[in-house]
């Protein structure tokens, strides 16, 4: 089954990070991605620019409405995602636990509706 990990962090927690911290962070994620590849479960990942860059658009209600900012204003914001292909939720939870974002924020695990596509 395919699962998407939605990585949520509080930008305030990242505000104090130095360049060296970011380099270390990048390395940590690099080895996590390496582990996902080695296990043959990696499907996809991406990082999102800070929430200040977000634009939200809707046609619901008949008119095109564009909003400056994210759809929901929350303290913890969506910062990136991983897609993995593993047998079940237990396996997905094990990988989510290893995800570096779990230490600094929250990882929401969602099965993908397209299944094994």
């Amino acid at each position: 089954m395919r699962y998407t990990f939605l990585l949520y962090t509080d930008p305030a927690d990242l505000a104090h990070m130095t360049e060296a911290d970011w380099a270390a962070e990048k390395e940590v994620y690099g080895s996590y991605i390496g582990a996902l590849h080695a296990a043959g479960v990696f499907v996809d990942t991406d990082w999102l620019q800070p929430v200040a860059t977000a634009t939200t658009l809707t046609l619901k209600g008949g008119t095109r409405q564009v909003q400056d900012g994210p759809f929901a204003d929350t303290k913890e914001t969506l910062g990136g995602y991983f897609v993995v292909d593993v047998p079940d939720l237990d396996a997905a939870m094990t990988w989510a636990e290893k995800c570096p974002a779990a230490k600094t924020g929250k990882v929401e695990i969602r099965p993908t509706a397209m299944g094994d596509g």
Binding site: P87, D88, L89, D90, A92, P111
Partner: peptide
């Protein structure tokens, strides 16, 4: 069923 919780 939908989240794939294993019977294991």
């Amino acid at each position: 069923r939908d989240a794939g919780i294993p019977f294991a």
